[in-house]
Design a protein around this nucleic acid. Structure first.
Lengths: 141, 141
DNA sequence: TTGGTAATGATAACCATTCTCATTTGTGGA
DNA sequence: TCCACAAATGAGAATGGTTATCATTACCAA
Protein backbone atom coordinates (compact mmCIF):
# COMPACT_ATOMS: atom_id res chain seq x y z
CA UNK A 1 0.00 0.00 0.00
CA UNK A 2 2.19 2.81 -1.27
CA UNK A 3 -0.68 4.77 -2.72
CA UNK A 4 -0.48 7.74 -0.36
CA UNK A 5 2.74 8.73 -2.11
CA UNK A 6 0.99 8.75 -5.46
CA UNK A 7 -1.64 11.07 -4.07
CA UNK A 8 0.84 13.37 -2.36
CA UNK A 9 2.85 13.59 -5.53
CA UNK A 10 -0.32 14.65 -7.32
CA UNK A 11 -0.90 17.36 -4.74
CA UNK A 12 -3.86 15.59 -3.16
CA UNK A 13 -4.38 14.78 0.49
CA UNK A 14 -4.35 11.06 1.22
CA UNK A 15 -7.92 10.79 2.37
CA UNK A 16 -9.83 7.55 2.84
CA UNK A 17 -12.25 7.98 -0.08
CA UNK A 18 -9.40 8.76 -2.45
CA UNK A 19 -7.40 5.76 -1.34
CA UNK A 20 -10.41 3.51 -1.75
CA UNK A 21 -11.16 4.71 -5.27
CA UNK A 22 -7.55 4.40 -6.37
CA UNK A 23 -7.28 0.95 -4.85
CA UNK A 24 -10.43 -0.13 -6.63
CA UNK A 25 -8.99 0.79 -10.02
CA UNK A 26 -5.76 -1.04 -9.19
CA UNK A 27 -7.46 -4.26 -8.17
CA UNK A 28 -10.59 -4.37 -10.30
CA UNK A 29 -10.76 -6.97 -13.03
CA UNK A 30 -12.51 -4.46 -15.30
CA UNK A 31 -10.21 -1.61 -16.30
CA UNK A 32 -13.02 0.68 -17.46
CA UNK A 33 -15.39 1.93 -14.77
CA UNK A 34 -18.10 4.59 -14.70
CA UNK A 35 -18.75 6.76 -11.65
CA UNK A 36 -21.74 4.64 -10.78
CA UNK A 37 -19.70 1.45 -11.19
CA UNK A 38 -17.17 2.80 -8.70
CA UNK A 39 -19.89 3.88 -6.29
CA UNK A 40 -21.66 0.51 -6.36
CA UNK A 41 -18.47 -1.53 -6.10
CA UNK A 42 -17.40 0.45 -3.05
CA UNK A 43 -20.78 -0.07 -1.41
CA UNK A 44 -20.60 -3.79 -2.16
CA UNK A 45 -17.22 -4.09 -0.49
CA UNK A 46 -18.61 -2.38 2.58
CA UNK A 47 -16.97 0.99 2.00
CA UNK A 48 -19.21 3.94 2.74
CA UNK A 49 -18.46 6.69 0.23
CA UNK A 50 -20.85 9.31 -1.06
CA UNK A 51 -21.70 9.48 -4.74
CA UNK A 52 -20.78 13.16 -4.90
CA UNK A 53 -17.35 12.32 -3.54
CA UNK A 54 -16.88 9.63 -6.15
CA UNK A 55 -17.56 12.16 -8.90
CA UNK A 56 -15.23 14.70 -7.32
CA UNK A 57 -12.42 12.21 -6.79
CA UNK A 58 -12.67 10.86 -10.33
CA UNK A 59 -12.42 14.36 -11.76
CA UNK A 60 -9.47 15.18 -9.51
CA UNK A 61 -7.67 12.01 -10.50
CA UNK A 62 -8.26 12.82 -14.12
CA UNK A 63 -6.78 16.29 -13.67
CA UNK A 64 -3.87 14.85 -11.73
CA UNK A 65 -3.18 12.44 -14.58
CA UNK A 66 -3.89 9.31 -12.55
CA UNK A 67 -7.00 8.41 -14.54
CA UNK A 68 -8.17 8.95 -18.07
CA UNK A 69 -11.77 9.85 -18.87
CA UNK A 70 -13.54 8.60 -21.98
CA UNK A 71 -16.83 9.68 -23.50
CA UNK A 72 -18.39 6.71 -25.20
CA UNK A 73 -21.82 6.80 -26.80
CA UNK A 74 -23.32 5.18 -23.74
CA UNK A 75 -24.07 8.58 -22.24
CA UNK A 76 -21.85 8.28 -19.19
CA UNK A 77 -18.16 8.94 -18.63
CA UNK A 78 -15.88 5.95 -18.21
CA UNK A 79 -12.53 6.06 -16.41
CA UNK A 80 -9.43 3.92 -16.49
CA UNK A 81 -5.98 3.99 -14.90
CA UNK A 82 -3.55 6.06 -16.91
CA UNK A 83 -0.84 3.70 -18.01
CA UNK A 84 1.01 6.51 -19.70
CA UNK A 85 0.78 4.91 -23.08
CA UNK A 86 -1.94 6.19 -25.38
CA UNK A 87 -4.43 3.82 -26.92
CA UNK A 88 -7.82 3.86 -28.60
CA UNK A 89 -10.92 1.79 -27.93
CA UNK A 90 -13.22 -0.65 -29.60
CA UNK A 91 -16.57 -0.91 -27.80
CA UNK A 92 -18.95 -3.87 -28.15
CA UNK A 93 -22.47 -2.61 -28.79
CA UNK A 94 -23.96 -5.81 -27.39
CA UNK A 95 -22.36 -5.97 -23.96
CA UNK A 96 -20.45 -2.69 -23.58
CA UNK A 97 -17.14 -4.53 -23.23
CA UNK A 98 -14.14 -2.38 -24.13
CA UNK A 99 -10.93 -3.50 -25.82
CA UNK A 100 -7.89 -1.34 -26.35
CA UNK A 101 -5.69 -0.97 -29.38
CA UNK A 102 -2.88 1.17 -30.67
CA UNK A 103 -1.93 1.74 -34.28
CA UNK A 104 1.10 3.83 -35.09
CA UNK A 105 -0.10 4.43 -38.64
CA UNK A 106 -3.36 5.96 -37.48
CA UNK A 107 -1.56 8.14 -34.95
CA UNK A 108 0.85 9.44 -37.55
CA UNK A 109 -1.93 10.26 -40.03
CA UNK A 110 -3.78 12.25 -37.37
CA UNK A 111 -0.74 14.35 -36.60
CA UNK A 112 -0.20 14.99 -40.28
CA UNK A 113 -3.83 15.98 -40.85
CA UNK A 114 -3.88 18.44 -37.95
CA UNK A 115 -0.59 20.01 -38.98
CA UNK A 116 -1.67 20.39 -42.61
CA UNK A 117 -4.71 22.31 -41.46
CA UNK A 118 -2.92 24.59 -39.04
CA UNK A 119 -3.96 22.97 -35.80
CA UNK A 120 -2.00 21.90 -32.76
CA UNK A 121 -3.39 18.64 -31.45
CA UNK A 122 -4.33 18.55 -27.79
CA UNK A 123 -5.96 15.20 -27.78
CA UNK A 124 -8.03 12.85 -29.83
CA UNK A 125 -10.51 10.07 -29.34
CA UNK A 126 -11.07 7.18 -31.69
CA UNK A 127 -13.87 4.82 -30.80
CA UNK A 128 -14.90 1.89 -32.93
CA UNK A 129 -18.39 0.62 -32.18
CA UNK A 130 -18.89 -2.98 -33.21
CA UNK A 131 -20.34 -6.42 -32.49
CA UNK A 132 -18.31 -9.38 -31.30
CA UNK A 133 -18.46 -12.10 -33.94
CA UNK A 134 -16.11 -14.83 -32.81
CA UNK A 135 -16.68 -14.88 -29.09
CA UNK A 136 -20.33 -15.25 -28.13
CA UNK A 137 -21.23 -12.09 -26.31
CA UNK A 138 -21.35 -12.85 -22.59
CA UNK A 139 -23.81 -10.22 -21.46
CA UNK A 140 -26.07 -10.03 -24.50
CA UNK A 141 -28.65 -7.47 -23.38
CA UNK B 1 -39.05 23.35 -52.10
CA UNK B 2 -38.99 19.66 -52.93
CA UNK B 3 -38.43 18.56 -49.37
CA UNK B 4 -41.78 16.82 -48.85
CA UNK B 5 -40.58 14.13 -51.24
CA UNK B 6 -37.51 13.53 -49.13
CA UNK B 7 -39.68 13.03 -46.08
CA UNK B 8 -42.17 10.79 -47.84
CA UNK B 9 -39.35 8.67 -49.15
CA UNK B 10 -38.13 8.30 -45.61
CA UNK B 11 -41.58 7.18 -44.50
CA UNK B 12 -42.32 10.37 -42.59
CA UNK B 13 -45.36 12.60 -42.87
CA UNK B 14 -44.55 16.02 -44.32
CA UNK B 15 -45.50 18.01 -41.26
CA UNK B 16 -44.64 21.63 -40.69
CA UNK B 17 -42.10 21.12 -37.90
CA UNK B 18 -40.26 18.51 -39.93
CA UNK B 19 -40.10 20.72 -42.99
CA UNK B 20 -38.82 23.61 -40.92
CA UNK B 21 -36.06 21.59 -39.31
CA UNK B 22 -34.93 20.11 -42.61
CA UNK B 23 -34.97 23.50 -44.26
CA UNK B 24 -32.90 24.94 -41.45
CA UNK B 25 -30.15 22.39 -41.98
CA UNK B 26 -30.21 23.04 -45.72
CA UNK B 27 -29.90 26.79 -45.39
CA UNK B 28 -27.87 27.28 -42.22
CA UNK B 29 -24.34 28.57 -42.55
CA UNK B 30 -23.24 26.25 -39.75
CA UNK B 31 -23.44 22.59 -40.75
CA UNK B 32 -23.27 21.27 -37.18
CA UNK B 33 -26.23 22.07 -34.95
CA UNK B 34 -27.33 20.84 -31.54
CA UNK B 35 -30.98 20.36 -30.63
CA UNK B 36 -30.93 23.60 -28.72
CA UNK B 37 -29.29 25.41 -31.65
CA UNK B 38 -32.12 24.22 -33.89
CA UNK B 39 -34.76 25.20 -31.36
CA UNK B 40 -33.35 28.69 -30.85
CA UNK B 41 -32.80 29.33 -34.54
CA UNK B 42 -36.40 28.37 -35.30
CA UNK B 43 -37.68 30.67 -32.58
CA UNK B 44 -35.54 33.51 -33.91
CA UNK B 45 -36.95 33.10 -37.39
CA UNK B 46 -40.44 33.30 -35.96
CA UNK B 47 -41.24 29.61 -36.25
CA UNK B 48 -43.06 28.20 -33.25
CA UNK B 49 -41.86 24.66 -32.65
CA UNK B 50 -41.67 22.84 -29.33
CA UNK B 51 -38.35 21.68 -27.97
CA UNK B 52 -39.65 18.13 -27.52
CA UNK B 53 -40.59 18.07 -31.18
CA UNK B 54 -37.14 19.22 -32.19
CA UNK B 55 -35.61 16.32 -30.29
CA UNK B 56 -38.08 13.85 -31.79
CA UNK B 57 -37.59 15.10 -35.32
CA UNK B 58 -33.81 15.06 -35.06
CA UNK B 59 -33.88 11.46 -33.89
CA UNK B 60 -36.28 10.48 -36.65
CA UNK B 61 -34.12 12.15 -39.28
CA UNK B 62 -31.11 10.36 -37.93
CA UNK B 63 -32.89 7.01 -38.16
CA UNK B 64 -34.11 7.87 -41.65
CA UNK B 65 -30.55 8.60 -42.71
CA UNK B 66 -31.17 12.30 -43.40
CA UNK B 67 -28.98 13.49 -40.54
CA UNK B 68 -25.93 12.17 -38.75
CA UNK B 69 -25.55 12.47 -35.00
CA UNK B 70 -22.19 13.10 -33.36
CA UNK B 71 -21.18 12.89 -29.72
CA UNK B 72 -18.48 15.45 -29.05
CA UNK B 73 -17.08 16.05 -25.59
CA UNK B 74 -19.32 19.05 -25.11
CA UNK B 75 -21.97 16.88 -23.51
CA UNK B 76 -24.64 17.44 -26.12
CA UNK B 77 -25.42 15.72 -29.40
CA UNK B 78 -24.64 17.57 -32.61
CA UNK B 79 -26.33 16.88 -35.94
CA UNK B 80 -25.42 17.54 -39.56
CA UNK B 81 -26.93 16.75 -42.95
CA UNK B 82 -25.89 13.34 -44.18
CA UNK B 83 -23.96 13.94 -47.36
CA UNK B 84 -23.57 10.22 -47.86
CA UNK B 85 -19.82 10.40 -47.60
CA UNK B 86 -18.24 9.49 -44.30
CA UNK B 87 -15.82 11.87 -42.62
CA UNK B 88 -14.23 12.53 -39.26
CA UNK B 89 -13.92 15.76 -37.28
CA UNK B 90 -11.34 18.09 -35.88
CA UNK B 91 -12.74 20.36 -33.18
CA UNK B 92 -11.15 23.64 -32.09
CA UNK B 93 -10.96 23.82 -28.32
CA UNK B 94 -10.87 27.62 -28.39
CA UNK B 95 -14.00 28.39 -30.41
CA UNK B 96 -15.72 25.03 -30.90
CA UNK B 97 -15.42 25.31 -34.68
CA UNK B 98 -15.58 21.97 -36.46
CA UNK B 99 -13.68 20.98 -39.58
CA UNK B 100 -14.17 17.75 -41.47
CA UNK B 101 -11.61 15.41 -42.94
CA UNK B 102 -11.39 11.98 -44.49
CA UNK B 103 -8.35 9.76 -44.63
CA UNK B 104 -8.54 6.48 -46.51
CA UNK B 105 -5.52 5.11 -44.68
CA UNK B 106 -7.11 5.59 -41.29
CA UNK B 107 -10.35 4.02 -42.47
CA UNK B 108 -8.56 0.98 -43.80
CA UNK B 109 -6.56 0.46 -40.61
CA UNK B 110 -9.73 0.59 -38.53
CA UNK B 111 -11.37 -2.11 -40.61
CA UNK B 112 -8.29 -4.26 -40.34
CA UNK B 113 -8.06 -3.83 -36.57
CA UNK B 114 -11.69 -4.75 -36.00
CA UNK B 115 -11.48 -7.78 -38.25
CA UNK B 116 -8.27 -9.04 -36.62
CA UNK B 117 -10.00 -8.97 -33.26
CA UNK B 118 -13.18 -10.67 -34.34
CA UNK B 119 -15.48 -7.66 -34.45
CA UNK B 120 -17.89 -6.44 -37.08
CA UNK B 121 -17.77 -2.67 -37.26
CA UNK B 122 -21.03 -0.80 -36.93
CA UNK B 123 -19.65 2.64 -36.72
CA UNK B 124 -16.76 4.67 -35.46
CA UNK B 125 -16.01 8.17 -34.31
CA UNK B 126 -12.69 9.91 -34.58
CA UNK B 127 -12.46 13.36 -33.06
CA UNK B 128 -9.28 15.39 -32.92
CA UNK B 129 -9.33 18.14 -30.32
CA UNK B 130 -6.90 20.94 -31.09
CA UNK B 131 -6.11 24.65 -31.15
CA UNK B 132 -6.01 26.76 -34.30
CA UNK B 133 -2.47 28.03 -34.78
CA UNK B 134 -2.40 29.82 -38.11
CA UNK B 135 -5.77 31.52 -38.17
CA UNK B 136 -6.40 33.71 -35.12
CA UNK B 137 -9.36 32.11 -33.41
CA UNK B 138 -12.42 34.21 -34.21
CA UNK B 139 -14.54 33.44 -31.19
CA UNK B 140 -11.86 33.05 -28.52
CA UNK B 141 -13.98 32.42 -25.41
C1' DT C 1 -3.09 17.81 20.78
C1' DT C 2 -4.98 21.19 18.31
C1' DG C 3 -6.28 24.80 14.85
C1' DG C 4 -7.46 25.63 10.53
C1' DT C 5 -7.99 24.39 6.03
C1' DA C 6 -9.49 21.11 2.84
C1' DA C 7 -12.52 17.10 2.04
C1' DT C 8 -16.72 14.77 2.70
C1' DG C 9 -21.67 13.44 2.35
C1' DA C 10 -26.61 14.41 1.98
C1' DT C 11 -29.32 16.77 -0.71
C1' DA C 12 -30.78 20.13 -3.94
C1' DA C 13 -29.92 21.96 -8.33
C1' DC C 14 -28.69 21.44 -13.22
C1' DC C 15 -28.80 20.29 -17.98
C1' DA C 16 -29.71 17.55 -21.89
C1' DT C 17 -32.95 14.51 -23.18
C1' DT C 18 -37.18 11.60 -23.05
C1' DC C 19 -41.90 10.63 -21.63
C1' DT C 20 -46.92 11.66 -20.99
C1' DC C 21 -51.06 12.94 -22.62
C1' DA C 22 -54.48 16.12 -24.16
C1' DT C 23 -54.90 18.70 -28.45
C1' DT C 24 -53.97 19.45 -33.25
C1' DT C 25 -52.74 18.16 -37.99
C1' DG C 26 -51.84 15.51 -42.30
C1' DT C 27 -53.69 12.23 -45.41
C1' DG C 28 -56.07 8.59 -47.81
C1' DG C 29 -60.60 7.23 -48.79
C1' DA C 30 -65.63 8.45 -49.38
C1' DT D 1 -63.68 18.44 -51.42
C1' DC D 2 -64.63 16.87 -46.99
C1' DC D 3 -64.08 13.51 -43.12
C1' DA D 4 -62.34 10.48 -39.89
C1' DC D 5 -58.68 8.67 -37.60
C1' DA D 6 -54.18 7.61 -36.89
C1' DA D 7 -50.09 10.08 -36.30
C1' DA D 8 -47.70 14.21 -34.79
C1' DT D 9 -47.32 18.08 -31.82
C1' DG D 10 -46.51 20.99 -27.64
C1' DA D 11 -46.35 21.95 -22.71
C1' DG D 12 -44.70 20.40 -18.96
C1' DA D 13 -43.34 16.61 -15.93
C1' DA D 14 -39.97 13.05 -15.40
C1' DT D 15 -35.42 10.98 -15.99
C1' DG D 16 -30.44 10.15 -15.66
C1' DG D 17 -25.92 11.67 -15.22
C1' DT D 18 -23.39 15.12 -13.17
C1' DT D 19 -22.30 19.34 -10.40
C1' DA D 20 -23.14 22.84 -6.65
C1' DT D 21 -24.27 23.93 -1.79
C1' DC D 22 -23.20 23.85 2.85
C1' DA D 23 -22.94 22.09 7.41
C1' DT D 24 -20.06 18.52 9.40
C1' DT D 25 -15.82 15.84 9.57
C1' DA D 26 -11.05 14.45 8.71
C1' DC D 27 -6.21 15.32 7.49
C1' DC D 28 -1.84 17.30 8.88
C1' DA D 29 1.69 20.73 10.16
C1' DA D 30 3.12 23.11 14.17
Amino acid sequence: MHQPKHLKKAGLKATLPRLKVLSLFETSKERHLSAEDVYKLLLLSGEDVGLATVYRVLTQFEQAGLLMRHHFETGKSVFELNKGEHHDHIVCLQCGRVEEFYDAGIEARQDAIATERGFTIHDHSLHIYADCTKQPCPYKT
